[in-house]
Amino acid sequence: MALDRLFRRRRTRGGGRDVPELWLKCPACEAQIYKKDLEANLMVCPECGHHLRMSVEQRVAMLVDEGSFEQTTGSVKPADPLSFSDTEPYAERLRRYQEKTGRSDAIYGGTCTIGGVPALLLVMDYAFAGGSMGSAVGEELARGAEQAAAQGRAFVTVAASGGARMQESVLSLMQMAKTTMALDRLWEKRLPYVSILTDPTTGGVTASFAALGDVILAEPGALIGFAGPRVIKQTIRQDLPEGFQRSEFLLQHGMLDQVVPRAELRQRLIQVLSLLHPEGAASGA
């Protein structure tokens, strides 16, 4: 059921043409916010605290120690193993997303330190095909976990994904097994894996590596689950309860360790990594 759930996600841009590019409308409280202010506030609405989606570059910048980041992703390029075509050939879609994002696929990251702890950070890009996981994304994740294990780094992922990518069919499904099993390289070396879930994380990404962090953190109000709300609604033919599948709901049901506001995320991550990573654990760093 790993769907590319591209249904009616809230837009981050103010809808009307009369709204200048410099201003954004908060999808939650509808306040008009100066774009620069929003970016300076890590894309969190200053009026209501709603967490908007942020670019993967900004995400990396907000989490890593300044000047420590070296990109490792990008050399793995997606292929079209099934010559898939629906209303548009998959190869065309890929080209379109590559042009739009400047990335070869829906993942970006590299080596860095986080509060001095050596880490490998991978961030999923929702802007690229809904952050869906095909062979290339799975390969980057598996390589990331393997490289972290080989170099004694903590492994950190930031998930934002509609799930496994339909256009690579069963090969996307297999990425769930591949990424999950690659995590065991970290287990063998007692290196920590921290999984951060952001809006939205569903389908085959939730149901594989993202659910297996030693510590799982989520941003407030993020949609997180296995099946998407629309699929569930169709199945059970009734409305879903308020707040269903949001971070707070999942915390209540025991699926997450903490819900952490974006402004506090780096500090919490540093704290967790320094407690878990052998360097921090031994030195009291």
Binding site: M1, T206, A207, G225, A227, V231, T235, Q245
Partner: peptide
């Protein structure tokens, strides 16, 4: 199964 109870009890997990 995609349902409320399944999600509540951690289907993805």
């Amino acid at each position: 199964y995609p349902g409320i109870s399944a999600e509540e009890r951690g289907q993805a997990w």
